[in-house]
Design a protein around this nucleic acid. Sequence first.
DNA 1: GTCCGCATGTAAGGCGTTACATGATTAA
DNA 2: TTAATCATGTAACGCCTTACATGCGGAC
Lengths: 184, 184
Amino acid sequence: MKKEESSLSTLSLAILGLISQRPLTGYDIRKVFATTPMGHFSSSPGAIYPALKRIEDAGWVRGRAGQGKTRRQRMLYEITPQGLKTLKQHLSRPVTRDDVIWHLDDLMMRFAFMDGVASREGTVQFLRDFASQIDGYVAVLRGYLNGVEDIMPPCGKLAMENGIQGYEMNAQWARRAIEELKRD
Amino acid sequence: MKKEESSLSTLSLAILGLISQRPLTGYDIRKVFATTPMGHFSSSPGAIYPALKRIEDAGWVRGRAGQGKTRRQRMLYEITPQGLKTLKQHLSRPVTRDDVIWHLDDLMMRFAFMDGVASREGTVQFLRDFASQIDGYVAVLRGYLNGVEDIMPPCGKLAMENGIQGYEMNAQWARRAIEELKRD
DNA sequence: GTCCGCATGTAAGGCGTTACATGATTAA
DNA sequence: TTAATCATGTAACGCCTTACATGCGGAC
């Protein structure tokens, strides 16, 4: 329910994260959103180009003329030192319960872009915090469900269980991910 | 990425669904969002009251003066026949892959409010369609992941796996839910 | 007599969605 | 030469977020 100082919308974070991996054009980004599992992002130009302009105005990326297969003019964006700093800051923000409730997708984005940007220990710590925040919230939800499950209609109850299982799956995933990252 | 005719935002659907179960005031709705697992909805007045007004203007709910513990004036909203029809229509819309990708939360809301509103067979059919649409999408995602997993950085790959596992969890949940609904 | 919970709103701003618009290049 | 793909945008709209505002009633 809260937004923090280094305000990056989830879409902006996704774009900045992608550009941090390698320089991209707006169209490249659209293709990533349209053809990969990042597909729950709007690949629409009305979302991408304004977002790109915003993070350019903020000084986090810099566009320069580049050409691809054709010699059309196209803007190739690369991350700036400022942008990398912002990204790092954003990725290293603590994991709160608010994040778990309201910005789960944002948390996952943060993790997804830690590869070149955060340290291995920082990444593992993030996953640990993530899992433990989820555990805490799941306990609350289970407590609530136990209190009302006798009076809840079947579909409502099943829907609530779906939500809880989703969180539990995330916690399990995080612990497996920690193991996997340690095997290096 | 698409919106349909009987356009109901997820928040409006949640409110209409809650009111369909029993008459509620705006404040009641805020409390539900603030204190139950429906907590990823904005319990803020700036969201609830305008949404309530919109669905009232649409003729789906009717407000009448009612009093609670105190004899303050407060608007108690109840669903209209029109509103119930709209809700039923919305709940019986087919489950598409677009829904799975862009409106999973909406699908879950639809299911959560089927209790008094949809038939038992309709509900089970919904879950079957839900599971099979997810299966189809998971196959696509797994295909993609297989193609690129050798060149993907560890965090990116793990994040993608998280997404896929989330979908798989949903499909499993749906099949268990079918079994549970049949045990009546 | 002050704070907290009840109860309902409004105003500004941000940003994503939908739809429209434009023009170059390439493959059929 | 016509359609598809590349490539970038704008405009209107809807709706959520944040913050502010108000006023009653009960409890301590």
